[in-house]
Amino acid sequence: MIPGTAWLVLFFLAPLAIIWAISFGENTSLVKTEITGTLDNYWRALSDVVYLKIIWKSLWISLLSTALCLAIAYPISFLISFAKDKWKPLLLMIVILPFWINLLIRTYALIAVFRTRGFANFGLEWIYNTLQLDHLFGAFEPLPLLYNNFAVIAGLVYVFMPFMVLPLYASIERLDKSYLEASLDLGASQSRTFWSVTVPLTMPGIVSGLILVFIPMLGSFLTPDLLGGTNAQMIGNVIERQFKAANDWPFGAALSFLLMYVTFGALAIRSVLSGRKSGMEV
């Protein structure tokens, strides 16, 4: 108990505490920060239009990507949990395995797909030419797939989708299938059964998945950094810039604590929502 706790206090809690303190400070020289208790850094983050825009963009990109993850992951989880028992572990493994591959490598692999002379455009060009559309509309123009918001959203969905499957699968798997049979037996249609029985009963898993995916997306740095253009930056990139290029630690610290507070808020929502469903916990 003591060693583990001590380690976390020293190499986790102490660093966070330092950042927290710095967020109330001012730069006095290149390498010195004085803790003055000022709230200016937070004020700047929440009033400067430039940063408000970035926070707003981070939020909508994360929300949209989270929703897309749910839309993709739910049918997949559904299929796996209704598959034959002997196939379940294999199917789950297929979904989860990419999650363990280095984030950097997966993002890098996407660059090769999306760039102007990448596989996506290459494939589209081939289809375009096979359909002889070039005779109609002229030569194929490669689509700008990289370095924009589209690339960031596609990247986030690609990277985090597997993470969504786990809680969804767990809750669908735990759902007593006789509820569905009862609903069908009582005359409800398949889609009515899905929306009135399956979705409400798997709601704890849905909420868990949404929040588990939303938090890392909101704080993501690498994906927007590599796939996004200069105007497709998210809050993580701004934080990084404050700590590296811009050397404005107090402001970066304030931004990262704002991010932490949003995280804690999301976690609180999750525990409230899952706590209320104590009868059918997930």
Binding site: G4, L8, F11, F12, A14, P15, L16, I18, I19, I22, T33, I215, P216, L218, G219, S220, F221, G236, I239, E240, F243, W249, G252, A253, S256, F257, L259, M260, T263, L267
Partner: peptide
């Protein structure tokens, strides 16, 4: 104990940067 798992990596990253470079 679960905190390091749930907080955004970037927050932990900059905290480590501050800790090791300044402390």
């Amino acid at each position: 104990m679960a905190l390091p798992i749930v907080i955004p990596e970037i927050c932990m990253g900059v905290a480590m940067l501050a800790f090791f470079s300044r402390v």
